[in-house]
Design a binder for these strands. Structure first.
Length: 506
RNA sequence: GCGCCCGUAGCUUAGCUGGUAGAGCAGGGGACUCUUAAUCCCAAGGUCGAAGGUUCGAAUCCUUCCGGGCGCACCA
């Protein structure tokens, strides 16, 4: 395509449809008049929200006495022109404020430019605050300047942007068009910073461990693989930080936590994104009972911080997060909801499969005892647990990294926190017996050879660390995205992730 | 991965059992000095997700592909 002279002769011209050329022409026009359409700064501005708060008491038709030097800046969200006067609605962040300009004050040139602004442009204004006859708090513009010219039209002001694909792909537009999305995502931020503060107040220290790992471990999941050129070695994106955090327990840290991304190469759904944020913590010299107390106190405190209440609504149901939460053994839950016992399931898997099939749970002939228990919990027991509940004492086969119970070597000291039928945390007394850990790894290795791609791999360096001696400890993992969904009352994980994973655009 | 649904202008959309696309907002021109979905007048804007097929004729029917949404499965 030949240039039509609007690109300044350097051949740089955004590929824009017809409506874009008008705006490029306007940019040239501004530059010819010595006005830079992409400014460097606009100092000394007052945020629009602050103006609204400061002058909330200002009466209709009244002019603020003290605001001669008021400077405001923001994106033009809408325009209402009146010939020799014009109103614009400005937005900075997620606060709106109206500004008003007329030709008498600005003069013909400046007012002409003011009228030629587009929705989407970013401007700075200086003037005084007043309240219009209709009662709207407004800045009367005495002078103004363009800060950034927008080349693309914003979504429609009344219907907004609904197309989910565009919303996720161009989140920057979504955030402008749907301010409630921004509020929600800010809620997630408050959750994370609240959790940090809560744990630091308890004496936990935040650490960062490798995301690129030579062996993926700490969870049962399929990893992403990558390659380091200089080292010429395969690396995996971590599926959990667990094994590195425990190495730190060996090294002497006694209360640590990490908040960061983990990656699992699995399906995408309403509750799964390939990269997700986990908080894991490890606390030396305590067992899973202390972790339960921490969880049942921390979650309501965070809810209070994010939503202002320790009660949340999930659909029509009110959920009370206040402690204490009941502790229920997996065995008692299976007995209550399926009339099955762990012992019975282990002894007669055919009968267990029969019972599960009657409950419309999809079981396969090759399902092991551990898989059957897992399915029974996920599909039958969890949906029945609405109020916060700790499910405790899992069969050993499900948990290759947790410590077994002193009174029953087939059970491990592990719990999951269940709220509104969803898993909101997974914790256990950490296995610190290196010989036992080696046996568990070897068992997993056999599963792996039998075709279970998610079985844990043997991590010799981790075993070496345990051989130096890891203090007894409790550990916890919480999926931040899912906790944010619960507290913010959203159904899709994409609504708590700024840039959810989508197929690449063409 | 499998099943169901969707894709029309920058955005929100109309378009019936096939007759070759219509609007609102945004953008352009004009009128209007307290409006707020401002109003009024004028003009412009579409390879109807893509490619094949059926047909005299396809946005519409069929097939495949691309992208998305929602269920199911795996996982947190």
């Amino acid at each position: 395509m030949p240039s039509d002279g609007r690109d300044g002769g350097d051949g740089v011209e955004p590929r824009l449809p017809e409506w874009g050329h008008e705006r490029l022409a306007e940019i040239d026009r501004l530059r010819e008049d010595g006005v830079e359409p992409y400014a460097r700064s606009f100092r000394g501005r007052t945020p629009l929200g602050e103006i609204a708060r400061t002058y909330a008491g200002l009466e209709t038709d009244q002019k603020a006495e003290d605001s001669h030097c008021c400077r405001v800046a923001g994106r033009v969200m809408s325009r209402r022109e009146h010939g020799k006067a014009a109103f614009l609605t400005l937005r900075d962040g997620w606060d709106d404020l109206q500004v008003y300009a007329k030709i008498d004050t600005l003069g013909e040139v400046s007012f002409g430019r003011f009228k030629s602004l587009n929705v989407g442009d970013i401007i700075g204004c200086e003037g005084h605050v007043f309240r219009t006859r209709r009662g709207e708090l407004t800045v009367f513009v005495e002078s103004w300047t363009i800060l950034t010219k927008s080349l693309r039209p914003l979504p429609e002001k009344w219907h907004g942007l609904h197309d989910r694909e565009t919303r996720y792909r161009q989140r920057y537009v979504d955030l402008i068009a749907n301010p409630e999305v921004a509020r929600q995502l800010q809620g997630r931020g408050r959750l994370v910073s609240g959790m940090r503060r809560y744990l630091e107040d308890l004496g936990f220290v935040e650490v960062e461990t490798p995301i690129l790992q030579p062996l993926p471990g700490g969870a049962l999941a399929r990893p992403f693989m990558t390659h380091h050129n200089a080292l010429d070695t395969e690396l995996y994106m971590r599926i959990a930080p667990e094994l590195y955090l425990k190495r730190l327990l060996v090294g002497g840290f006694d209360r640590i936590f990490e908040i960061g991304k983990s990656f699992r190469n699995e399906g995408i759904s309403l509750i799964h994104n390939p990269e997700f944020t986990m908080m894991e913590l490890y606390w030396a010299y305590v067992d899973y009972n202390a972790i339960m107390e921490l969880v049942e106190n921390m979650i309501p405190a965070l809810s209070e911080e994010v939503t202002g209440s320790t009660e949340i609504m999930v659909g029509e149901t009110k959920i009370d997060l206040k402690p204490p939460w009941p502790r229920r053994t997996v065995d008692s839950l299976l007995r209550e909801y399926l009339d099955l016992s762990l012992e019975g399931m282990r002894a007669d898997q055919q009968q267990a499969k029969q019972v599960l099939r009657e409950r419309k749970v999809d079981v396969e002939n090759r399902d092991t005892f551990a898989m059957l228990v897992d399915k029974a919990l996920k599909h039958v027991v969890w949906p029945a647990l609405v109020q916060p509940t700790f499910a405790i004492d899992y069969p050993l086969e499900l948990s290759p990294l947790s410590k077994s119970r002193a009174d029953d070597s087939l059970l491990v000291e592990r719990f999951q926190a269940i709220i509104a039928g969803r898993e909101m945390g997974n914790a256990f007394s950490e296995l610190n017996d290196p010989m036992d850990q080696r046996r568990r790894f070897e068992e997993q290795a056999r599963n792996r050879e039998a075709g279970d791609e998610e079985a844990h791999v043997v991590d010799e360096d981790f075993l070496r660390a345990l051989e130096y001696g890891m203090p007894p400890a409790g550990g916890l993992g919480i999926g931040i995205d899912r906790l944010a969904m619960l507290l913010l009352g959203v159904d899709s994980i994409r609504d708590v992730i700024l840039f959810p994973q989508l197929r690449p655009e063409h």
